[in-house]
Write a protein that binds this DNA or RNA. Structure first.
Length: 498
RNA sequence: GAGGCGCUAGCUCAGUCGGUAGAGCAACUGCCUUUUAAGCAGUGGGUCCGGGGUUCGAUCCCCCGGCGCCUCACCA
């Protein structure tokens, strides 16, 4: 009788209308759920049937006339139920038969084992808790093989809730993300780090090389930038006497989107007074191996068809040595940009003199070297020019005490001995500011207050940043960062959903 | 931002060398009281991403646009 007969949504709306007419509320306010499904399954004893009341979504339904099997699923798991007219009563059973896949129901009854040996609930009473009027994709499974998986990437990201309802792998991956994030927090807390929250809206763009999102505060009548990194605030806290701090939260960078980049991404930044970049390497290594052992029981983890060994100690190789090893180019011996250009061109890279020696070196590294680091590798001792916030070696001012960690060819972490010399920092800021004036949109701005903070004295400090989304990619074995972010940024599709 | 690929039923996908479309699952109707990718019989369901062009006729060919994916560039 609907306007569009055959349309599943209209059919279900009709069902709702009928229920309302007969005084049944398809969206009741409350249900006394007494048991979690996983607990019911775990506690099952064939010789001792127990009364249970579970709640969840109907995930499957197999009706055989006057009796029926189905599965309800809650967050903890899934269980089969057996609904029979003789037990439920004719009216209740008829109503149950109108319920659809995706409906939330409360199921009460006694546990029993079917002839085929499946733990089930013999339904005494089944009540609708929330009607699902949208047709769910039907994903079936047998012997671990998944049929008709809901696989349209666009729909998965746009309607993540549907993805979570029907695809077990998605649910598992995000559960894993949650657990890893809390594992990281636990690890840091156990190591006496204090979690802090610093501003997300900055008036100065600094702390990393990236283009910011710009926003505006009405009352103050000023431009603000969404933070690209919390770094400078966290170091202010070290100045303030918090010796070990971390912040695990979102950064925003107005850059491209691809399998490794989302404009908002999660980063943990960690600062430790009286430590240097070597201590940060140890900390990083311990964190990763602790997580691997916790979640896999081993440091060998599968990733995209390969096995990565996270077992320490990890390889440490100097920036210039790594480039030399892979390409034969020794940047420590190169004296002029022209020389660097010709070396880079020899291996087929497009660069020009204005980049300077070290940006060219960085280009060579990114193009030819990084992908060779499959197992964890600390790339250390960066050139000063590429690192405006890191401290130089006492005996070699051209290089800084910094490392980046690569796993599976991807940058996973960045750390250094923090530059705490206010005079040096001021000079570096001025250099950045000049680059900015010359059109480098990613160069930092001068943060005068930060210089003032340094003038109060930042103790020798090690700092470390780890990209959480990328770490998760590793642990849930996915090739795209979007599979680790519940709601990745997409363009609006311009269509009305539904 | 550039190039390549894709977009067909609620989902997963066929297909039309240009004559306005089909399967499986889901839905609806009937049968079925131990099924589990339940089964059997029948039915309905589509602006074939949008707009324009070519054509007697376009879902298909051409152009423009939208969204997604992949590769590249920037970046973590």
């Amino acid at each position: 009788m609907s306007e569009k007969p055959g349309d599943i949504r209209s059919q279900r709306i009709e069902k709702i209308e009928k229920m309302r007419e007969s005084g049944i509320n398809p969206y009741p306010n409350r249900y006394e759920r007494k048991d979690r499904i996983a607990d019911v399954v775990a506690a099952f004893d064939e010789t001792k049937p127990v009364k249970v009341a579970v709640a969840g979504r109907i995930k499957s339904k197999r009706v055989m006339g006057k009796a029926s099997f189905g599965n309800v699923e809650d967050f903890s798991g899934s269980i089969q139920f057996y609904a029979a007219r003789d037990i439920m009563g004719e009216e209740e059973y008829a109503l149950y038969k109108t319920h659809d896949l995706g409906d939330h129901v409360g199921v009460e009854g006694e546990t029993f084992l079917t002839q085929k040996g499946e733990i089930s609930i013999k339904v005494k009473k089944l009540v609708l808790l929330s009607k699902c009027i949208q047709p769910l994709p039907v994903v079936k499974e047998k012997d671990g093989q998944v049929f008709d998986e809901f696989s349209d990437t666009e729909l998965k990201y746009r309607h993540r809730y549907v993805d979570l309802i029907v695809n077990q792998k998605t649910r598992k991956d995000f559960l894993m993300r949650s657990k890893i994030v809390s594992g990281i927090r636990r690890f840091l807390e156990e190591n006496d780090f204090l979690e802090v929250e610093t501003p997300m809206m900055h008036s100065v763009v600094s702390g990393a090389a990236a283009r910011p999102f710009v926003t505006y505060h009405n009352t103050l009548d000023m431009e603000l930038f969404l933070r690209i990194a919390p770094e400078l605030y966290l170091k202010r806290l070290i100045v303030g006497g918090f010796e070990r701090v971390f912040e695990m939260n979102r950064n925003f960078r107005n850059e491209g989107i691809d399998t490794r980049h989302n404009p908002e991404f999660t980063m943990v930044e960690i600062y430790q007074a009286y430590a240097d970049y070597n201590d940060m390497m140890d900390l990083t290594e311990r964190l990763f191996t602790t997580l691997a052992e916790q979640f896999f029981g081993t440091t060998d983890i599968p990733y995209q068809g390969e096995t990565l060994s996270l077992k320490g100690p990890w390889r440490r190789v100097r920036f210039v040595d790594a480039i030399k090893e892979v390409t034969g180019i020794d940047f420590s011996a190169i004296k002029s940009p022209a020389e660097a250009v010709s070396a880079a061109r020899k291996i087929g890279l497009e660069v020009d003199e204005s980049m300077g020696i070290w940006k060219i070196a960085d280009e060579v590294l990114g193009e030819r070297v990084e992908k060779t680091f499959q197992n964890p590798t600390f790339l250390t001792d960066y050139p000063k020019e590429l690192s405006p916030l890191s401290k130089s070696f006492e005996d070699n001012p051209d290089y800084v005490e910094r490392f980046e960690l690569f796993i599976a060819g991807r940058e996973m972490a960045n750390a250094f001995t923090e530059l705490n010399d206010p005079f040096d920092q001021k000079e570096r800021f001025e250099g950045q500011s000049k680059m900015r004036d010359e059109g480098d949109a990613e160069a930092m701005m001068i943060d005068d207050d930060y210089i003032t903070a340094l003038e109060y004295g930042l103790p020798p400090t090690g700092g470390l940043g780890i990209g959480i989304d990328r770490l998760i990619m590793l642990f849930v074995d996915t090739a795209s960062i979007k599979d680790t972010i519940l709601f990745p940024l997409l363009r609006p599709d311009g269509q009305q959903d539904i």
